[in-house]
Computed example of a mutant assay.
Amino acid sequence: MTSNNWINLAQDDETGIETLQAHFEGHAYDPHWHDSYLVGVTEQGVQQFNCRRSRHHSTPGNVFLLEPGEIHDGDAPEDGGFTYRMLYLDPQWLERELGAVFEKAPANTCLTFASTLSTDPRLAQATAHAFAVMHRPELRIVRQNALNNLMQALTSNLQWRKQYSQDPRLPRVARLARDYLHDHMHHNIGIDDLANLTGVDRFRLNRAFKSSYGLAPHAYLVQLRLAKARRLLALGESCADVASALGFADQSHLGRWFVRAYGLTPAAYRKHCTNVPDR
């Protein structure tokens, strides 16, 4: 990160919504994902990112929309960098709130964004206003009204997608390896372990896994651990305890990966997302 980069993060106690305003120049963050729905608006500059196998350029007034688990990165391709505001919406909270808009969700479906970028000025205005009232102390009724307006603006960008427990389009070896990583994310897993499990050599496994999920198995495992680290840190767990629990070598090891993915240290994230004092 350059010395001109900065991040301002907060979390709302009632909804759990995180709000983030940030500025980056040059490389912002490596490919990663979140457990939340991300709704953000670019304020200044050009925000370049790769997602859904395409490269996108978000300019001032554009709204970018990312689903839980969608891999994306971030770069500033022009001098002066880019600035954006972002809301991280918990999936259960979002589906509950949208229950007032969609009376009944179709069976076995999940909410998805129709597109990654939107030029809808109404959505951009609703996103910016929701960020403004959620990021600073404001009357509860004002916050709720802003979120209601955001939900209404989002409806034209949302759709229901059939939910698969196992996506039949993906190779069996990739699905087996992915499930094993989820079940054993705390362990010191080797690529040979995954190769033995799936019955193919490690080179074929790497190709199948990356083709299916966009990351090699080792990078996918790191992202699993980082997503879990965010949840534990937000609950007030110490950085050292989180690093130990998730199989990182030490606190510094966790910190290096955390900064590469999110642009801030675990300690900084914990400080802004919990009221537990540092020990």
Rank of each mutant, 00 (worst) to 15 (best):
W6V: 05
A22F: 11
N148W: 13
L20E: 01
E18S: 09
L233D: 00
C273A: 11
R178E: 08
R230Q: 01
A195K: 01
D250V: 07
Q92M: 05
L176C: 15
G236S: 05
S252H: 13
G236K: 02
S211G: 07
F258P: 00
P68N: 03
Y37N: 03
G40W: 01
P60M: 08
G99I: 03
W6K: 05
A105Y: 07
L233K: 01
G255I: 12
L139D: 13
L176M: 14
S244A: 14
S115E: 11
S36G: 03
C51W: 04
W33P: 11
S156E: 15
R279H: 14
G74M: 12
P31F: 10
A219F: 05
C110G: 09
F102D: 02
A219G: 05
Y164T: 00
R140C: 10
T15M: 01
A132Y: 00
L232A: 10
L246C: 01
L87I: 06
G214L: 14
Y180I: 10
G199I: 04
A234I: 09
A132F: 01
H129P: 09
R53F: 14
F209W: 12
V242C: 05
Q21G: 12
A132P: 02
L176I: 11
T119M: 14
A76K: 02
P60N: 12
R270L: 06
